[in-house]
């Protein structure tokens, strides 16, 4: 699906979302009433300091305007922008700030929904899609932490060996299925059905409290230990000194 197809399918009555050099900013009316604020990264754009601050500004502006509509984060990005200038200016703060704004918005009752419709990687992934409460994907989405050739360089294992290993464990290999098994992606939407309906169904679901991704990863077998470890530490920390 192209970005235009996606937006058309999400917002049947039209929208004012613009693609500004790879940054998506705008909003659109929801099928069940109300409006969704939309931010996003398109065209496999790398997320640098200038991009991150525009996106966070949009989130904060939405919060200031008030209302209780969801915030939709559409993602087809590169990784973070890898440059001297971005690091010099403190890219980590800009990306963290964007994530903070999204997490805060969600805590203020603005359901944040990530829609991964293309590529994403590394720091850009964390600051956008992974900072939402609910992350869904479209078929063909390509999330990755690091590509296999780079991983091959670092681990000194051949790409063939890595591919072989990937068959037995989803924990390191790139790709939507692998990320889904670890609990990062809640569901993959069906392209053939109206995205507006699927979004509506998702927003209508009761929101369980807390971050459920580690439990999801355990249930799906992609992250055997994370949920239990976090829970055990939690219990120990609450015991009296």
């Amino acid at each position: 699906m192209t970005l235009d197809d996606i937006l058309a399918s999400l917002f049947l009555e039209g929208h004012d979302i613009r693609n500004n050099d790879g940054l998506l900013l705008g909003s659109g009316p929801l099928k069940g009433g109300g409006r969704a604020e939309v931010i996003g990264v398109a065209d496999r754009t790398a997320v640098g300091v200038d991009d991150a601050i525009r996106l966070s500004g949009q989130v904060l502006a939405a919060l200031e305007r008030g209302g209780d509509g969801p915030i939709l984060v559409l993602v087809d990005s590169d990784s973070q922008r890898m440059s001297k200038r971005d690091e010099l200016l403190g890219l980590n703060e800009f990306l963290a700030h964007l994530a903070k704004c999204l997490i805060y918005a969600d805590m203020q009752g603005r359901h944040t929904v990530g829609l991964l419709y293309g590529h994403t990687a590394a720091g850009a992934f964390i600051a956008t899609a992974l900072a939402t409460r609910t992350l869904v994907a479209l078929p063909g989405a390509e999330p990755e932490v690091m590509d296999l050739p780079s991983m091959s360089k670092v681990t000194k294992l051949s790409i063939e060996v890595l591919k072989e290993k990937a068959k037995s464990t989803p924990v390191f290999a790139p790709g939507l299925d692998n990320l889904a098994q670890t609990g990062a992606v809640l569901a993959t939407w069906d392209e053939k059905i109206s995205l507006a309906d699927q979004l509506q169904a998702l927003l209508g679901n009761d929101r369980q409290g807390g971050d459920q991704r580690d439990r999801l990863g355990k249930a799906r077998g992609g992250r055997p230990k994370a949920a239990d470890m976090a829970e055990r530490v939690y219990d120990l920390a609450l015991q009296p000194e």
């Binding site: 590394a122 964390i126 991983m151 290999a173 992250r223």
Partner: peptide, 12 residues
């Protein structure tokens, strides 16, 4: 890297 997906998600 050897558990990149789990690590990425842990950070989130």
């Amino acid at each position: 890297l050897q558990e990149a997906n789990a690590g990425e998600l842990a950070i989130a």
